[in-house]
Amino acid sequence: MDMIAGKIKLTSKTVDQSMNPLDVLERETRLSARDVTVHYGDKQALFGISIDIPDRAVTSFIGPSGCGKSTFLRCINRMNDTIEGARVGGSIKLDGDDVYDPNLDVVELRARVGMVFQKPNPFPKSIYENVAYGPKIHGLARSRTDLDEIVVSSLRKAGLFEEVKDRLNEPGTSLSGGQQQRLCIARAIAVGPQVILMDEPCSALDPIATAIIEELIDELRENYTIVIVTHSMQQAARVSQKTAFFHLGKLIEEGVTEDIFTNPEHKQTQDYIMGRIG
């Protein structure tokens, strides 16, 4: 037990010290959203969200349940397209390309913007096949050895390789919850995305698995733009450099994580951080 506690502490420490918070402001913007609205049928879920998301940093969305965090996250890789009755307005630009440009190919967009879901959702296939799935459909590997290499390096980057190297042919569902989530991260990495979206990736996991994933996120930050939705403020504080606070479908406040937590401008943000809102 002590060891675990130590590990968590250690993790949060590494995270805190790894980057000067003010650096975030100097990072170039990878994603910029302007005036994004979402309707589900007649019900409006998001009201004019505008935010810039910096490259190679972790941006976290916090806010009470049902405030539209996931909805906004799904706008970024157009997963809302798959929901019947969902309509998106406004614009989101990824490296200057309009995500909602009718000429833009969703398939290509999603290859650039990977996603990890709330509940680990490995396919009912082997561990190897799970990771190889993305590269295969996108035709990223020219040969079997190419594919092997991608699978191994993705599993490595997801910090899972050592644990599963002897059972790559076992079904992905045979892993523990935390391992499954890392498998899903490996699966996303294997396509070589620029951005990785994570929707409460730890909410179904125990504290140890959570700590491991948080550590992993921190490592991945060096190469990817990461956006994470979380309902845990501690987690946001631990892993992210930039934080956005949503409430009732509106973006209330955004900024450097440290500022948001220590010195929120809005009363609603403060209330939420103090635990006064849902």
Partner: peptide, 20 residues
Amino acid sequence: AMRDGSLGLGATQSETIRNV
């Protein structure tokens, strides 16, 4: 979730249906 996982990786609808 299974379907979303595949679509989220950039698979087309039919790829998702056939492979997942």
